[in-house]
């Protein structure tokens, strides 16, 4: 292998989900097997790097000041769904069940990984709450120790908690739809039982 090839492979290997073999395969594919695809890929990378940035309001991917969701007048801005990462937002969007707006934290509190409140996209959220446009905050963070701690932190340290009328809710944890009780693991079953509601 040549030095330039090895340099390319080294950079590819640093990408998430790629190991030594897969980075080698991709490098060979781009340089030897399908070199015709290369210019288009380079252009796409350059264009994306130039154009894509964070939405100043919610932290979602955007190409203008606001992302497509924040710019959409039909979305309910008084309801804000707080998620950890952009893919979480995409998943909720795909469900089609939600017509409010979002706020992407780009992480959760985890001192082990060096993530504190300063690393999260909190200033923008605080500004949104202070503006008074938010009526309900839905916490859609993961159901683990770090997600739990982040929820506590948010409820204690946002203007919402300061006696204002903002309603704070957390999404439910329970059985996957279409799944039977039989195949759910014991931890999920327990939270499903704890989160039961009256049926009428």
């Amino acid at each position: 292998m040549t030095p330039a090839f090895e340099k390319l492979q080294k950079h590819l290997k640093q990408l998430p989900g790629l190991g030594y073999r897969s980075s080698e395969r991709i490098a060979l594919h781009l340089l030897v097997e399908k070199p015709a695809q290369l210019p288009a890929l380079v252009t796409a990378l350059e264009e994306a790097a130039r154009a894509v940035r964070r939405c100043t309001r919610c932290g979602n991917l955007a190409e203008t000041e606001l992302c497509a969701i924040c710019a959409d007048e039909r979305r309910d801005r008084s309801v804000v769904c707080v998620v950890e990462h952009v893919p979480d937002l995409v998943a909720i969007e795909r469900s089609g069940a939600y017509r409010g707006s979002y706020h992407v934290l780009h992480g959760k509190l985890s001192p082990i990984h060096g993530v504190g409140p300063d690393e999260l996209n909190l200033a923008a959220l605080r500004a949104r709450m202070e503006s008074g446009e938010v009526g309900e905050l839905i916490l859609a963070l993961s159901n683990d120790v770090e997600g739990e701690a982040t929820c506590h932190y948010l409820t204690e340290h946002l203007p919402a908690s300061a006696g204002s009328a903002v309603k704070v809710t957390r999404i439910g944890f329970g059985l996957p739809s279409g799944g039977g009780v039989l195949y759910a693991d014991s931890v999920t079953l327990k939270s499903a039982l704890e989160g039961r509601r009256s049926y009428s």
Binding site: L109, S110, P111, I112, G114, G116, P117, D144, V145, E146, E148, A149, T150, H152, Y153, E156, H157
Partner: peptide, 27 residues
């Protein structure tokens, strides 16, 4: 164990803020 490890990481970093410690103590 997980929450304890997170709280200890905060204490070890020496930049622990009450608010962050409180968040993990809740769990």
């Amino acid at each position: 164990s997980r929450a304890l490890a997170e709280r200890n990481a905060l204490l070890k970093a020496g930049r622990a803020v009450d608010a962050e410690l409180a968040a993990f103590e809740q769990t």
